[in-house]
Simulated scan of single mutants.
Amino acid sequence: MTTPILSARDVRKSYGRGANKFDALKGVSLDIREGESIAIIGKSGSGKSTLMHVLALLDQPTSGTVELAGHDTRSLTGTALNRTRNKTFGFVFQQFFLTANASVLENVMLPLKIAGVGRSERKRRALAALEQLELADKAKNKAVNLSGGQKQRSVIARALVNTPRVIFADEPTGNLDTATGAVVEDILFDLNREHGITLIIVTHDEELAARCDRRVHIRDGLIVDVVEAATATPATATAEERAA
């Protein structure tokens, strides 16, 4: 059997201590196959964002293990952890996190700069990513002057520039109108389908989640249900087809 790209085993995450202790995750186990699309669904406070942060190696679990392609990530610290995260993962967040007064190109080049890639190669790869997202004509524009949809496409370009194996998308359409959100959804699922990038979406949007291969429902820090694609809308359905 193929080794999962990510595997969580009895992951627990607590904040605070004593009377103020809060258990955000209470023993979560989950395998994520390379190349699949998966939605982690739950209400605010359910633990879905905490689970994403732990899977993405942005936060350490209080106990339990997270394996990346079969390797225990507890051995990763400091520079090795940052390098692994930067090389393996791309991130698309609801809040964009673009540097407002920097150019779109500079924003997209940032992961490559962190990775130590030379400037000429950074520029080449960033422009290629922007071309893929049909934003090459905005490369010199300041991020602050973009529309919401253009900002989110810039974020996706930034997520792609290091050719990641996994993209984490946290409420990726939450700040967008319906039409623009549908375009962003289609871009993410095209990347999953055509390039084999594992797509992990954290959302409370059931319609968005239904496009994924699997839907993982989390409540009060526990996985309560997993729904396979056989009972979900196929990921190949476009936004227009779903609206028909």
Rank of each mutant, 00 (worst) to 15 (best):
E171Y: 11
P172A: 10
P172Y: 11
P172R: 12
T173C: 14
G174R: 04
G174H: 07
N175E: 12
N175Q: 10
T178A: 15
T178S: 15
A179I: 14
A179P: 01
A182V: 11
A182Q: 09
A182H: 08
A182P: 02
V183I: 15
V184T: 10
V184P: 07
D186F: 08
I187W: 08
I187C: 07
L188S: 12
F189E: 03
D190T: 14
D190K: 15
L191M: 10
N192Y: 05
G196A: 03
I197D: 01
I197E: 03
I197G: 09
T198Y: 10
T198S: 04
L199Y: 04
I200L: 13
I200E: 02
V202G: 00
H204I: 03
H204C: 11
D205H: 00
D205L: 00
E206H: 14
E206F: 13
E207A: 15
A209T: 00
A210I: 07
A210S: 15
C212L: 03
C212R: 10
R215S: 13
V216R: 06
H217P: 00
D220S: 13
I223G: 09
I223F: 00
V224K: 03
D225G: 01
V226W: 00
V227I: 14
V227R: 12
V227G: 02
E228D: 14
A230D: 15
A230W: 03
A230L: 06
T233S: 02
T233H: 04
P234R: 00
T236K: 13
T236R: 14
A237H: 09
A237Q: 10
A239S: 15
E241Q: 15
